[in-house]
């Protein structure tokens, strides 16, 4: 079943004399349970595709459908709610809050969702357990290794039980062994919990973990 559909999506940055077309008519359908890798040189439109998929940005023309809902027709507030309830994010730079412990970082999305304190703690603890960091819950990010920080970030992304995980070069800052660990964690999340994963990567090795690879070039899918 199609979870996400890009229908002839274009995105143009800048107006006036030098508009930059980042996406030139993207058509892409992603089914529930897929593990998709987006590849391509920088400026080819991967990040723009991710931003639109993340409901952080909207298409200039065309349709982006999330569970058959046209996201263009939603306002900022509604898109935030959609993000909060269905999407999880993993960034290249981890993007954890400094001076907050691992469990506080994992809890953050639940705070904004308005969960009760006890529920938040236990859900955050469970998520940390899933990524194998329950012993490190009280450590601040600067006391954790890069791999551990990314695991905390993954725990934060899955704590809300999202339908889709959006990972933007999740292993970009990690050595190959740690990268492999992170990738097998993502794979198991995809296979055991059935989370759909969309991942941007530059490395073929990482793309090999995925179930489908989409190559971008000049704002379009290379066929």
């Amino acid at each position: 079943m199609a979870l996400i559909q890009f229908k002839n999506v274009t995105k143009t940055y800048g107006t006036g004399e030098n508009p930059f077309p980042a996406l030139k008519g993207l058509n892409l359908t992603i089914d529930e349970g897929e593990f998709l890798a987006l590849m391509g040189p920088s400026g080819s439109g991967k990040s723009t595709t991710m931003n639109i998929a993340a409901c952080l940005d909207t298409a200039t023309s065309g349709n982006y459908l999330f569970q058959n809902i046209s996201v263009e027709n939603l306002d900022t507030h509604q898109r935030t709610l959609l993000r909060r309830n269905f999407l999880g994010f993993i960034f290249q730079g981890f993007n954890l809050l400094p001076r907050s412990s691992a469990i506080e970082n994992v809890e953050l999305p639940l705070i904004y969702r308005g969960d009760k304190k006890q529920d938040r703690r236990s859900a955050a603890y469970e998520a940390l357990e899933k990524v194998g960091l329950s012993d490190w819950q009280d450590h601040n990010p600067n006391e954790l290794s890069g791999g551990q920080q990314q695991r905390v970030a993954i725990a934060r992304a899955i704590v809300t039980n999202p339908k889709i995980l959006l990972a933007d070069e999740p292993t970009g800052n990690l050595d190959s062994q740690t990268s492999a660990e992170i990738m097998s964690l993502l794979t198991s999340l995809n296979q055991d919990s059935g989370v759909t994963i969309i991942m941007v990567t530059h490395e073929q090795e990482m793309a090999d973990y995925s179930s489908r690879v989409v190559h971008f070039l000049d704002g379009q899918i290379r066929t």
Partner: peptide, 16 residues
């Protein structure tokens, strides 16, 4: 700014 970006991305509303 970055902290604000993280918060907004993971589900904070403007009002938060």
């Amino acid at each position: 700014t970055k902290e604000i970006g993280i918060r907004l991305a993971i589900g904070a509303l403007e009002k938060h």
